[in-house]
């Protein structure tokens, strides 16, 4: 039994998005959140390229994927800058200590 290329890529996309969502939901570390976002967006980007290929509009899909790469990188950079400053001011990267609403 051979698995077709689109099916393989869709499994890859679903896996990356699933791992990203799970990590986003469970992690408490600010930098790990950025790792999770990166994985999530890689899945979305791959889905765009695949969708372009499946619909015969490869160039449209690729130009959208470039936008996604740039946006993703900027999110990562700003997130890291935020993490550095949070660490400097609050002294921890624990997301729970970022809230002022104590339970």
């Amino acid at each position: 039994m051979t698995i077709s290329i689109p099916t393989t890529v869709i499994i890859m996309v679903l896996g990356l998005i699933g791992i990203g969502i799970y990590a986003l939901l469970t992690t408490r570390h600010l930098l790990k959140v950025i790792v999770a976002l990166q994985l999530l967006v890689k899945g979305a980007m791959l889905a765009l390229v695949l969708a372009g290929r499946l619909t015969g509009q490869e160039d449209l899909g690729q130009s959208l994927a470039i936008t996604v790469i740039i946006a993703d990188t900027i999110v990562a950079v700003i997130g890291m800058a935020l993490a550095v400053q949070v660490r400097r001011v609050i002294g921890t990267l624990d997301l729970r200590s970022l809230t002022s609403l104590r339970r």
Binding site: L31, L50, I69, A76, L93
Partner: peptide
């Protein structure tokens, strides 16, 4: 999948730049 331009950008930015920045941020935050 036939998207070499995206692959190059992803490799240089996603695997290169972001990793370097990550290591840098980990250095700063510990």
């Amino acid at each position: 999948l036939g998207a070499p331009e995206i692959a190059v950008i992803e490799l240089s930015v996603g695997a290169g730049l972001v990793t370097v920045l990550f290591v840098f941020a980990i250095n700063l935050t510990g």
